[in-house]
Amino acid sequence: MELERTYHFKKTLEKKERFAPGHRLCAGCGAGIAVRGVLRALNEEDRAVIGNATGCLEVSSFLYPYTAYEDSYIHTAFESAGASLSGVEAAYNALKRKGKVKDTVKFITFGGDGGTYDIGFQSLSGAMERGHDLTYVCYDNEAYMNTGIQRSSSTPRFASATTSPAGSVVPGKKQNKKNLTDIIAAHNVPYVAQTTFIGNFRDLYTKARKAIYTPGATFLNVMAPCPRGWEYPAEMLPEICRLAVETCVWPLFEVENGVWRLSYEPKKKLPVEEYLRMQGRFRHMFKPGNEWMIEAAQKSVDENWEKLLAKCLG
């Protein structure tokens, strides 16, 4: 299908909400924003089945007997979102062939970084490799927030988490963040993109539409900050997202049929320090004597940015 080239912010916001108010996510949480933003990209006449890995989003949006979803929804377990939605999509194909289902149904599943980068990585990889016609959306808040801010393979180096706390000997998490978007791109699926909440949501909306309406398995990685784990005041969420992009900590890009494309290039790349300073999880990096941590973080961001530029321009 031909997707519109122009984005109308007001018209988009006027679309009927598919993620209803009344869910129990925290104020200033990125997960709910990700779900609302992605579901807004559905054509209003299309039905959807929403999948979900266990996590904050699941326990806050489907407490029996209340569901926040206007569409059908399935949660099975922490590590099974990719496989469960594969089964739903397979059932759709079978029932459509038999004439038992006639209209268009889209399949979108949400998982946090725990359910996506770590415990659900295998079932996600399987679903991508098999090429089911579905979209997997990771709302990446860089730790296991639902169980109380434990480190994940998505937690950036130096971040203090409850299983990688900063102490007098260990400076927070020792390892760099896993580059999952690249790993999924290496599955050679037709569409992979990285986005977050920027300005008028144009980036999230257009990428979600491409992901949902590109036939085959597609993947969206959405940086979705967590006020408890990252330690910021709820109202600072847009500013944190903006700085993540302007410092190139979280670059916006897409990989469409193997072609890498940068969605946004900061006019002046800001120092990573500005992004780190806003968050309590990096507090220890600003203590005297720990300057090397900020330098190391900057070096890592620079290296990743150069690699990305090479892929996008090369």
Binding site: V49, G51, I74, T76, A77, E79, S80, G82, A83, S84, L85, S86, G87, V88, E89, A90, A91, Y92, N93, A94, L95, R97, K98, K100, V101, Q122, S123, S125, G126, E129, R130
Partner: peptide, 28 residues
């Protein structure tokens, strides 16, 4: 047969896919 065959990457996923399929209204 007229079946959708899903060659999953583990038994955890075979049961997960069966759950998704049966929940969707199919016989798995």
């Amino acid at each position: 047969v007229n079946t959708e065959y899903v060659p999953v990457e583990s038994e955890h996923s075979s049961m997960s896919a069966c759950i998704g399929a049966q929940a969707a209204g199919a016989r798995a």
